[in-house]
């Protein structure tokens, strides 16, 4: 590769003193000083969070209020910092969601460990875990920042569900129970 040496253009006297540049710089900062401020007064004003923001991971319910997580523990497996800990449990026969069979007895996410990578959301086969728009996590102790199932569902709320897998399953079961074709 040919190297072409480009000479610097010679400086004139004023440029050598650097003073025009210094004064120019001062003018820029002065102009900036007089411009309107861009600060967001945080606790009072909140930024708008884009839809694909990766905030605190939360658990969501489907439109019927059923907890979507079936504690398959794939998120626990994939979580790079091992922030997720699930205690699996089965669903009682008397429960209206008995057809789902399995749900987490407890679902812990250690927010101090979480790195908000979103891999749990990506891996979840039931679309039960979402990194939503909550970004400000605080607490007075380490224990407080281990979010348990109740808290995670409270944060997550209900999301419109595109998949009616379990509903269809229940319908089919009911149809069979009613003596219909199976």
């Amino acid at each position: 590769m040919a190297v072409k040496v480009v000479d610097r253009s010679p400086l004139n006297f004023w440029e050598k003193t650097y003073m025009p540049q210094v004064l120019g710089g001062l003018k820029i900062t002065l102009d900036n000083m007089l411009r309107p401020k861009v600060t967001l007064q945080y606790p009072e004003e909140r930024p708008t969070i884009p839809d694909n923001y990766r905030g605190v991971p939360t658990l969501v319910r489907d439109p019927n209020g059923r907890e979507k997580c079936v504690s398959c523990q794939l998120c626990e497996f994939v979580c790079p910092p091992k922030a997720i800990r699930i205690t699996p449990g089965d669903i009682d026969d008397s429960d209206e969601n008995a057809h789902v069979e399995k749900r987490p007895k407890d679902f812990e996410i250690n927010m101090l460990r979480c790195i908000y990578c979103g891999m749990c959301q990506e891996v979840c086969p039931e679309e039960a875990i979402f990194l939503q728009d909550i970004y400000s996590v605080s607490g007075y102790s380490r224990e407080e920042l281990v979010y348990h199932k109740a808290k995670l569902y409270e944060l997550g709320g209900t999301l419109p569900d595109q998949h009616y897998k379990w509903d269809r399953k229940k319908e089919a079961e009911e149809k069979v129970a009613a003596g219909g074709h199976h």
Partner: peptide
Amino acid sequence: KVASWIQGRV
């Protein structure tokens, strides 16, 4: 204050 003004802050 001056620093923040120059940097567009409050």
